[in-house]
Design a protein around this nucleic acid. Structure first.
Lengths: 343, 343
DNA sequence: ATGAAAATTTTACGCGCGTAAAGAAGTTTT
DNA sequence: AAAACTTCTTTACGCGCGTAAAATTTTCAT
């Protein structure tokens, strides 16, 4: 490779013996030029390693090949995991994904959305903060940018929503727990960060009542995204005050459960379904770490790949439909029960 | 706010009764125009909510206000955490951070670096994959873009490196373990992903020998980024073959330790420093989850904030110095020992 | 009030690329 | 081999903004 730097497409066109518009065409779609021409360009490319200026490319476009991925809290491995799948799919589909985390702050979420608008992305995958989200900011954003909401539904926002079928999550865990032992109490935060928690609580109550059982919801105090710590403190509180009606606890999500298990361990309580176990604990999400808790967590698992695939499909359809659907589409994806040692 | 859309700076200038160059100046530095002028602009901004086209802004710039943050594996909460701090600092300093994860793949790391070059960022924070990195790709990248390496050192690459003082990490844990019980065996992966692991092993051997003790390094098989699973399998293997010389294990990093603890739990071994404990386990990193393991992990903690601050400082200096330092600068940051229940 | 300094306006050009139109060259069909 | 397509070249314009230079206005100190 000669060390000569090419400044622009004009120069590169000259070096490859073609015209600039042809080169431009090639970069927008390599298949749109004749195979022999393509070979000449790619040979020259290997020689001089030129890349068009992305800013010049995009300034005159109404839509770019960028897609945004916005999650509420990236330090939560659940979101890291789901973002990872969506990123991969986006790349495979020829887009450039850009990942943002609101880090749990409304202000940051708003700033991200503002900045993202200016990037003129072809589309955005948005998992909003939930309760802390600024509805009007999200509404404004969705008017400007084709958006697929995921994980946390904000009624009426975006053209599509892809999320969990929370009823399926809870139904499976409750049924399993009831079938194999005493019915569970439901353990959650008093002021949950997103609507999934509320849906799970309602599902729990419904499933329990349908089975003729008395639901028992235990709600612990705590703010923010430090769910594990809240779960641990909740466990201590619950165990101190002996407020559990049975020996079985169903946590609203795995991060709470991880903390809950830590609390049980602190107090010398053995968790599991075997001999000598004082408590069974199950949960929802299949958090990446839930297989390494002690004991490993029985949980209702997100179908990460399926969620990511569905998100991609919806965004594609949305982009092809020009950014608008006739009516908002909601896809809820069922859970898969994963039996481990904790319940 | 009137619903009239402004197309460009020209229109906005007309509406605010000023000239386009003045508006341009304002957007590049609001403090560079007279306060009264600034007020007029900001009043008009509130009315019409105009934002300059970032592509047009950047195409004619040699450097933008973007900074890149590249980590090897974002689903590892350690990197999520460190990225979070660096992001925050970058925003506070007026930059637009863009976060990338190589997801453990060399090919993806190379693609990220290529794409990042085209973004003409003011600077990049790069935590390379380590052993799996393509040295020549990183070298080429660092020639084009002012880069501060962090976490994983690649000799001679980038203008600065900010990392851990691995000796300090290991020295503190080994000293503590020896002071309070039997000396530790060192538990690690046979083919570690990055050079920190090697430095830690060497430090362990050195500290042990200095204390007149016999070092014992246990190296388990395993590839990839699933450290916890490798740690668990390693624990089973080590415990089955009774290859531990003492009751104390020092893991190379917390993720291995999390798996090791899970393995111990599987086998009914109680870990900790108290009565009835069969094993002590300590580690390094202060992974965000290490306080929720069972038992909670005794570990040498990264000073996350200090690392992030140092990275920012170095990149600032680098940018101001025009992208080159006289000589490569290395900053190693010491650990802080965190005592928890596991050892 | 006067002059100097600072801020702003006017004017004008350039950045690198997208893209449209018209004609030339190359390729395939019959 | 001629006709009918494709593909490519030439030419030309526009996108939205940065930025330089010179002229003008405003501000501030004297």
């Amino acid at each position: 490779m000669r060390e000569q730097k090419i400044r622009n497409m004009e120069e590169f066109a000259a070096l490859s013996g073609l015209s600039r518009p042809t080169i431009s065409k090639y970069f927008n779609d390599p298949a749109s030029v004749r195979p022999t021409t393509r070979q000449r360009i790619e040979a020259a490319l290997a020689e001089h390693d030129f890349r068009p200026n992305i800013y010049a490319m995009n300034q005159n476009r109404s839509l770019t090949k960028n897609v945004g991925i916005v999650v509420p809290y990236l330090a939560d491995p659940f979101f890291a995991e789901i973002a990872r799948f969506i990123e991969r799919r986006s790349i495979d589909a020829g887009f450039s994904p850009i990942l943002y985390s609101a880090h749990g702050e409304q202000k940051l979420e708003n700033e991200i959305l503002e900045g993202l608008t200016a990037l003129k992305p072809a589309g955005v995958f948005l998992a909003p903060l939930g309760r802390l989200s600024d509805r009007s900011a999200i509404e404004r954003f969705c008017r400007d940018v084709p958006t697929v909401l995921f994980d946390s539904n904000v009624e009426g926002m975006g053209e599509a929503f892809v999320g969990s079928d929370n009823f399926s999550f809870v139904k499976q865990t409750v049924d399993y727990l009831c079938r194999t032992g005493s019915p569970p109490a439901f353990f959650e935060m008093r002021t949950p960060a997103n609507p999934n928690a509320n849906k799970r609580r309602h599902a729990y109550i419904e499933v329990m009542e349908e089975a003729g059982l008395e639901p028992c919801v235990i709600r612990v105090e705590g703010e923010g995204w430090g769910f594990e710590e809240i779960g641990r403190r909740g466990a201590h509180h619950v165990l101190e005050t002996r407020s559990l009606p049975t020996d079985t606890v169903l946590c609203s999500n795995d991060r709470l459960a991880i903390g809950f298990l830590a609390g049980c361990y602190d107090r010398g309580l053995r968790v599991g379904r075997g001999e000598g176990c004082a408590l069974r604990v199950a949960s929802h999400d299949d958090h990446p770490f839930s297989r390494f808790t002690c004991p490993a967590l029985t949980t209702a698992a997100h179908q990460y790949e399926q969620v990511a695939d569905t998100c991609m499909t919806k965004l594609f359809q949305l982009i092809e439909a020009g950014g608008r659907f006739e009516k908002r589409e909601e896809t809820l994806i069922a859970a898969k029960l994963i039996l481990r040692a904790s319940a």
